[in-house]
Amino acid sequence: MTEPAFVLRDPAHRVSPKARTLWQLQCGLTAGIGVIGLLVGALVWREYDARWWVLGAAVLVGAAYAVVVPRWRYAVHRWEITDTAVYTQRGWWARERRIAPMSRVQTVDLAQGPIDRLFGLSTLTVTTASAAGPLRIEGLDRPLALELSERLTRNAEAAGGDAT
């Protein structure tokens, strides 16, 4: 079989495997809060006969969400930084690939939330002059993220111009 000519390959690198655990925790928490909310509702609103069925369905959906979505996201999330460009891929149901040339990079932002810190992970956000949103790499190991952020800043400076 011949490869079609115009197909983008996936970006070269996966994010840290710890990101999968982090997302499992996050999705689990979200699903858990939803289920607890419904449980309280079911205990209070006694007139509604099908309430336990609704709750059961919610538990199933929540469990599926917490199990499937993190794995799916981990399978999709990838990144690559070359000398001339940044290339990211993220999402799960909707997949988003972004390519930005190094010469158009405006700011590089490294963020770490409280749960991220627990796992030693960071999110790298690269903005360009476009109002249509930044490139974002979630779930990078802290030391790697620091190194990338420095490299990006250096490259963007070297590329010069006002990035518009």
Partner: peptide, 24 residues
Amino acid sequence: IGWTTTDTWFQRRAGLTTLAATTA
């Protein structure tokens, strides 16, 4: 100043993608 492609599972199945050229 960059490219974005977005495709949902339905779009991927139909072999389609939405291409956006970003600009300042």
